[in-house]
Amino acid sequence: IAKLSRDYLPEDKIKMATEGSALADLINKIQMEYTSSDISITSFANVVSGLKKNLTTRDVLNTYRFPNTAIVLEIDGKTLREALEQNYTYIEYNGEYKIAKRFLEPKEEHYNFDFFYGINFELNLKKENGNKIGKIYFKEKEIKNEDKFSIVMNNYRATGAGGFDMYKNLKVLKSYDKEISEILLNYFRNL
């Protein structure tokens, strides 16, 4: 369906969670562009194939495996910080980084780690009790608790699933009927 400038493949889960993922960035960019949101988050199924340079429909469907739709919420800086802190309970550190046991047992839940796009933040995964997130920046300006933003995510995460209760009562700015996989396919078909 399209020719990309490069392959966008998943990497080691720890590496992606600590250093970021070009694959997640691409999906987030597309979601942001489609919804005109300030911030975007996406997550991966436990197993994803990635997007190859010679892109097929199957690549997209095997990478974005959820039948989710996009939803845009209004979020303030304080709630954004809570979400980031919750997100990074995924990684533990005791001499080395590893995935927290509760994301592996009784069942694997890698899909409950989100990749954030549109913000930068200081991250210290070696801290024991919370406060792994330092300063958060939007367009190089430090975010204050009361600052408001639009954030796009899937409708599953917006329900608070995966321990993200802070999203449940946020104001809905816009919701979309189209599945995110369809949004991605349309984007690639129009490249």
Score class of each variant (00 low, 15 high):
Ser150Asn: 04
Glu108Ser: 11
Val172Trp: 11
Leu104Ile: 11
Asp12Pro: 04
Glu142Asp: 13
Met166Ala: 15
Tyr8Met: 06
Leu9His: 00
Tyr176Met: 00
Leu26Pro: 07
Lys52Gly: 03
Met166Pro: 11
Tyr137Leu: 12
Lys53Ser: 02
Val72Ala: 04
Asn94Met: 05
Lys78Trp: 10
Ile27Arg: 07
Met153Phe: 09
Glu142Trp: 14
Gly50Gln: 00
Met166Ile: 15
Pro67His: 01
Glu128Ala: 15
Ile119Val: 04
Lys135Gly: 12
Asn112Ser: 02
Leu26Gln: 03
Arg81Phe: 05
Ala70Glu: 08
Glu142Pro: 12
Asp25Glu: 08
Gly50His: 05
Ile75His: 01
Val47Trp: 08
Phe116Glu: 00
Gly50Tyr: 00
Ser37Cys: 07
Asn154Arg: 10
Phe103Arg: 03
Asn54Phe: 04
Lys141Pro: 05
Asp38Arg: 05
Phe115Arg: 01
Lys52Glu: 06
Tyr117His: 07
Thr35Lys: 04
Glu33Gln: 07
Thr57Leu: 09
Thr63Ile: 01
Asn46Ser: 04
Asn155Pro: 00
Glu179Leu: 15
Ala100Gly: 10
Lys98Ile: 09
Phe115Ile: 05
Gln86Thr: 12
Leu80Gly: 02
Val60Arg: 04
Tyr64His: 09
Lys3Ala: 11
Lys132Glu: 09
Lys174Cys: 11
Lys126Pro: 14
Arg6Pro: 05
Gly95Val: 02
Asp38Trp: 01
Asn112Ile: 06
Gly50Ile: 07
Asp38Glu: 07
Leu80Glu: 06
Asn46Met: 09
Arg6Ile: 07
Lys53Cys: 05
Phe44Trp: 01
Asn129Thr: 14
Arg189Asp: 11
Ser36Phe: 08
Tyr88Asp: 07
Tyr137Met: 13
Glu105Ile: 13
Arg157His: 06
Val172Glu: 14
Glu109Ser: 06
Ile183Lys: 07
Leu185Ile: 15
Phe164Gly: 10
Tyr187Ile: 12
Tyr90Lys: 01
Thr57His: 10
Thr69Gly: 15
Asp59Trp: 02
Leu84Gly: 09
Ile143Met: 05
Asn145Ala: 15
Gly118Val: 05
Glu108Trp: 11
Phe149Pro: 10
Glu182Thr: 12
Leu104Glu: 07
Ala2Gln: 14
Lys15Phe: 11
Thr57Val: 10
Ser175Ile: 15
Ile14Thr: 02
Gly130His: 09
Asn154Phe: 03
Asn28Gln: 03
Tyr111Glu: 03
Lys135Phe: 13
Leu184Val: 13
Asn190Pro: 11
Gly118Tyr: 00
Glu85Val: 06
Ile136Arg: 03
Lys3Arg: 13
Arg81Glu: 08
Lys101Gln: 14
Ala100Lys: 11
Glu122Lys: 04
Gln86Ser: 09
Leu173Ala: 10
Ser43Glu: 01
Ile1Val: 15
Asn131Thr: 09
Val72Asp: 06
Thr89Arg: 12
Ile133Asp: 10
Asn124Trp: 13
Asn124Val: 13
Gly162Val: 08
Thr63Glu: 01
Phe66Thr: 00
Lys171Ile: 11
Glu105Trp: 10
Ile91Glu: 08
Val72His: 04
Ile41Ser: 00
Glu182His: 12
Ile75Pro: 01
Glu74Ala: 04
Asn190Ile: 14
Val60Phe: 04
